[in-house]
C-alpha cells in the first residue's frame, strides 16, 4: 500500500521564522518540507504516511486576514490531495489554537478531508472547535510535544485509512465531537441496568455526566466591621497608569498586585483600566468608579472600617479563561489571608 499523504499546518514560531515580531508572516506553502513538529509526527508515522507539504502562517496574519488566508490555504491543500490534514499542536497559544481550529474546520467542511489538531484544554481554540473537529488535549507548552505527536499521528493514520473512529474516551480526543452509533439496548433498558448496578453497589457509567456546579458556602459575616481589614479586588482591569505589568486587555494571562499605601483616591493621571471589553472612558476619567479607593479611605478615616488593605489585586475579566481567573484568585486569596485581611470587596464591570 502506498503511503498516506499528510499536509501539516504550523505557525511562524514552530517554523523557526520568529516569535511575536514575525507573527504577521503571510501564509506560505512548502512542498516536500517537513518542519519542526512535523519531524515528531514523521517519526510516529514510520512507513505508513508522509508529510507531503507544510503550510506555515503567522498567527497574527491568520487572525487578521482569516478569510483570505483560509481561502489560500484551502487551495493549497486541495492541490496536495492529502488523505489527512494535521494542524499544530498549538499547546496554549491562543491565536495559534484558534487558527488550527479554523483551518481544520475549513479543510474538513470544504474539502471533505479528515482533520486533527491538538492544543491545551484552556486554549480558547479548544472550546471554539472541539465540537466541530477532532482536538487532542496537550500540555500547555511545547514540552508536551513528545506526548502529543504520537497520539495525533496515530489518530491521523486511523483517519487517513478511514478506520472506524470510536468515542472520545476510546480515542483520546476532547469530548465534544459527537460520534453517532446504534446502542444494542434501548435507553429504558440501559437506564434500568444502571439503576440496578447502582443499587447493588456495582460500578456503572453515566452516559451523560452532569456539568459540575461548584458551590462554595458563604463564610460567616464580619462581626465588627469597624475593626476589619478590607481589601479591594477587581476584574475591571484597574492598573497604575501605563499598565506596568502589561496585563492583557483580553484573555488576561496574569493578575496585578499594587500597593496603595498613602493613595487617597484613584486619579486619572496615575491609574487607568487595561480592560478591553468595555468602553474605558469613564474608568479612565475616574478609576474610583471601578475601584472605590476614595470612599474606602473616607470610611477608614471616619472609623467605619478598620483599615483598607494596602494592596489591591486586579485582572482583566474579558475573555479570560475561567481556570485562569480561578488560579489568580486562589493565589492572591492566600496572600490576602497571610496579610490578615478579614474581608474582600470584589468589583466587576
Amino acid at each position: 500500500m502506498s503511503k498516506l499523504r499528510v499536509v501539516h499546518y504550523i505557525n511562524q514560531f514552530f517554523a523557526g521564522i520568529g516569535g511575536e515580531e514575525k507573527a504577521d508572516t503571510p501564509a506560505e506553502l512548502r512542498v516536500g518540507e517537513v518542519i519542526g513538529p512535523g519531524m515528531a509526527l514523521k517519526a510516529s508515522f514510520g512507513e505508513e504516511a508522509e508529510i507531503v507539504a507544510t503550510i506555515v502562517c503567522g498567527d497574527s496574519y491568520f487572525a487578521e486576514n482569516m478569510d483570505k488566508a483560509k481561502e489560500q490555504i484551502i487551495g493549497w491543500v486541495k492541490e496536495q490531495k492529502p488523505d489527512v490534514f494535521i494542524a499544530g499542536p498549538a499547546f496554549n497559544a491562543g491565536r495559534y489554537g484558534t487558527a488550527c481550529g479554523a483551518i481544520c474546520e475549513a479543510v474538513q467542511n470544504k474539502l471533505n478531508i479528515p482533520v486533527v489538531t491538538g492544543m491545551y484544554i484552556e486554549n480558547p481554540g479548544a472550546d471554539m472547535y472541539k465540537n466541530k473537529i477532532y482536538v487532542f488535549p496537550t500540555k500547555d507548552s511545547a514540552a508536551g510535544m513528545k506526548d502529543a505527536a504520537p497520539l495525533m499521528a496515530k489518530f491521523a493514520l486511523k483517519l487517513g485509512k478511514k478506520e472506524k473512529i470510536g468515542s472520545s474516551k476510546e480515542e483520546g480526543f476532547m469530548p465534544g465531537k459527537r460520534i453517532n452509533f446504534f446502542a444494542e439496548k434501548r435507553g429504558s433498558e440501559r437506564a434500568v441496568d444502571m439503576l440496578l448496578a447502582k443499587i447493588a453497589g456495582k460500578p456503572f457509567e453515566t452516559e451523560y455526566p452532569m456539568p459540575e456546579f461548584d458551590k462554595v458556602a458563604p463564610n460567616p459575616e464580619i462581626k465588627d466591621i469597624t475593626k476589619a481589614t478590607i481589601a479591594l479586588c477587581t476584574s475591571g482591569g484597574i492598573v497604575p497608569k501605563g499598565n506596568p505589568d502589561h496585563i492583557e486587555s483580553s484573555n488576561a494571562l496574569k493578575y496585578g498586585e499594587y500597593d496603595i499605601t498613602g493613595v487617597m483616591e484613584l486619579t486619572s493621571d496615575k491609574y487607568e483600566t487595561a480592560h478591553g471589553g468595555y468602553d474605558p472612558v469613564y474608568a479612565n476619567e475616574r478609576p474610583d468608579r471601578v475601584l472605590p479607593v476614595d470612599v474606602m479611605r473616607d470610611l477608614e478615616k471616619e472609623g467605619k472600617i478598620g483599615k483598607l488593605h494596602n494592596k489591591f489585586y486586579t485582572t482583566v475579566g474579558n475573555g479570560t479563561a475561567v481556570a485562569s481567573a480561578k488560579k489568580y484568585a486562589a493565589e492572591y486569596a492566600q496572600k490576602l489571608k497571610a496579610d490578615g485581611v478579614d474581608a474582600v470587596i470584589m468589583t466587576s464591570t
Binding site: V216, K326, A329, V344, I345, M346, S348
Partner: peptide
C-alpha cells in the same frame, strides 16, 4: 474569583452590574 476568595475562608462581596452572571 469570588468563589476562590470565599474558599480561602475570607468573606467576600461581589459588586457588579450583571447580577445573573454573578449568581
Amino acid at each position: 474569583m469570588v468563589k476562590e476568595i470565599e474558599r480561602a475562608g475570607i468573606p467576600v462581596v461581589h459588586m457588579c452590574t450583571i447580577t445573573p452572571i454573578s449568581l
